[in-house]
Lab assay of single mutants.
Amino acid sequence: NNDALSPAIRRLLAEHNLDASAIKGTGVGGRLTREDVEKWLAKA
Rank of each mutant, 00 (worst) to 15 (best):
D19N: 09
E15S: 13
L13D: 00
R10E: 06
R31Q: 12
D36T: 01
G27I: 02
E38A: 09
A42M: 13
A8N: 07
G29T: 04
E15T: 11
L41P: 00
A14Y: 12
K39D: 10
N1A: 13
S6W: 10
A8I: 09
E15H: 14
E15I: 15
P7R: 11
I9V: 11
N17H: 11
W40M: 10
D3K: 10
D36P: 00
S21R: 11
R10M: 08
R31V: 13
G30Y: 01
K39L: 12
T26W: 03
L13R: 00
L12M: 08
A4Q: 14
R34Y: 15
G27S: 03
A44M: 15
E35R: 12
L41K: 01
V37W: 04
E35I: 07
W40N: 03
G27W: 04
A8S: 11
L12I: 08
L13A: 04
G29Q: 07
A4K: 10
N1L: 12
R31K: 13
V37I: 15
A8K: 08
E38N: 07
S6A: 09
K39R: 14
V37G: 00
S6E: 12
G30D: 04
P7E: 15
A42S: 11
K43W: 15
I23V: 06
E15M: 15
S21E: 09
A44Q: 14
N2G: 13
A14F: 11
A14Q: 11
R10K: 10
L41A: 04
A14I: 08
A22N: 11
V37N: 00
D36F: 01
L32S: 00
N2F: 06
R11K: 13
D19H: 08
I23S: 01
N2W: 03
K43N: 12
V37M: 04
A4F: 15
L5E: 05
L13P: 00
G25S: 04
K43V: 10
N17L: 07
G30A: 05
T26I: 04
D36A: 01
V37A: 05
T33L: 06
G25R: 04
E38Q: 11
L5D: 05
I23D: 00
L13F: 06
I9Y: 05
A8G: 08
